[in-house]
């Protein structure tokens, strides 16, 4: 592997974590972001689960999409791309179920920590979002690049949800006007955070 390839991968990674943060610029995964970011511990576990599931499902779905669904794919010659959505969501749901069963079997401690978050992950739009952005025609990425992209996006989600959990624990002591509590103040803080992340724009040359 020569330098330019590693450099290219670093660009994909940094862009996914910071400048194109899946949560702050693409607005995906907001539901679990709002629901889970009340405590730092839960945010950390949820973020880790998202990183793991995103990377694994991106790998599986990349193989299915370019191996079976696309026109002229090695396995079937017909164009099956209209099945993309249903296959992707079925892969994610099945994978999450599988992980849940494996964790339950081998580590009850991890199961107790992660257990309740795993079903939530199926409907976390960040994961389906990463899978769908990966196959956008203008992305045109290889298997390694898409793995790095999925890893970066997952870590970006982890970063944002942990930052938010830290901010919200400070917020509990703050005197927020009553109508602004809940959704209002959370959105405004997230907006400020997105502005801070916008400051990195230009650091990564696409």
């Amino acid at each position: 592997m020569d330098g330019s390839i590693i450099g290219g991968l670093a660009v994909v990674f940094l862009a996914a974590v910071i400048t194109n943060n899946i949560l702050l610029t693409r607005f995906l995964g907001m539901c679990s972001f709002i629901a889970i970011s009340r405590s730092m511990r839960n945010a950390w576990y949820m973020g880790l689960a998202v990183v793991f599931v995103t990377v694994c499902t991106a790998l599986i779905n990349y193989a299915i999409y370019f191996g079976v669904l696309v026109e002229g794919a090695p396995l079937l010659q017909t164009d099956l791309t209209y099945l993309t959505f249903i296959i992707f969501i079925a892969t994610i749901a099945a994978f999450v179920q599988l992980v849940e069963m494996v964790i339950e079997r081998f580590s009850s401690r991890l199961y107790n920590a992660l257990g309740i978050y795993l079903p939530l992950i199926t409907v976390n739009c960040a994961i389906l979002g990463v899978n769908l952005f990966m196959i956008e025609p203008d992305m045109d990425i290889s298997l390694i690049q898409s793995t790095i992209y999925a890893l970066g996006s997952g870590l970006g989600f982890l970063l944002a949800i942990c930052l938010m959990a830290g901010l919200r624990s400070k917020l509990e002591a703050a005197d927020v006007p009553a109508p602004l509590r809940g959704l209002g103040i959370t959105m405004i803080i997230t907006g400020l955070m997105a502005m801070a992340f916008m400051g990195f724009t230009g650091m990564v040359q696409q």
Binding site: L24, F27, G184, I185, M187, G191, A194, M195
Partner: peptide, 10 residues
Amino acid sequence: APGAFFALGA
């Protein structure tokens, strides 16, 4: 993007 958050919050 940040404007979207501010608008919804408002």
